[in-house]
Amino acid sequence: MIATAPAAIAWTTEEIQIAGSSVRLRSAGSGAPLLVLHHDIGTPEQLPVYEALARRFTVLLPSHPGYDGSERPGWMRSVRDVAVTYQALLAARGLAEVSALGLGFGGWIAAEMATMAPRGFRRLVLVGAMGLKPASGEILDQALVSYIDYVRAGFVDQSAFDRLFGADPPTPLLEQWDLNREMTFRIAWKPYMYNPALPHLLGGVRTPTLVVWGREDRIVPVECAQQYARALPGARVVELDGAGHFVEMEQPDTLAKLVAQFAAES
């Protein structure tokens, strides 16, 4: 992983055996448990949003299997396989009353998890989540654009990209993005980035959900926010001005605050 900001919080890293595979779980902070599921591009080790969240929650940040150098289970062929693995991870840790924050691709995984255990999460926050077929637009296909162009497309403010990854990202970071892209292809190639059954299955979810979207998301069309809201009983939508797909990297404080407020609701 690439460190992009100084570590201000102490992280613990564990390898947890789930269904014969090793899942890397990093955790930090204290308070109610919050499962944070990262994007398809993986995640930098440190981000200001993680620090902000760790002040209020016990943040559980697994690396999706096969991402960022974690073990790749060769048999894993769908996003639902990842979701089942994470359900098993929570069960193995004996965790209850967990809230989940799913970022982009991680939002899709979180949504799939919610369909498997309709009351499983305490609260669910989906941010620019993949998983649904946009009614009119398209999810940006990373197979057709370079690593750099894809990640840049997720930012409104390109200087935020430059600060986090460098104006000209180093080759090891590109290799990491390639590795993560390969794993994304392994589990989400076709249909690309959605599950046709998901909008139907979401109807059974009984978890209070907040759907957050950057109004200038160029990776997952903002129309998907309303599609999630229609599919999920009682979901609320917050659209943010001046944010793209990577809301947590462009507006970390705003997002951390939204999550904290939503989680505090009874």
Binding site: S146, Y147, I148, T171, L174, E175, D178, L179
Partner: peptide, 9 residues
Amino acid sequence: RKAFVEFAV
């Protein structure tokens, strides 16, 4: 991987 990543950008 490294060679093709560098080629791609």
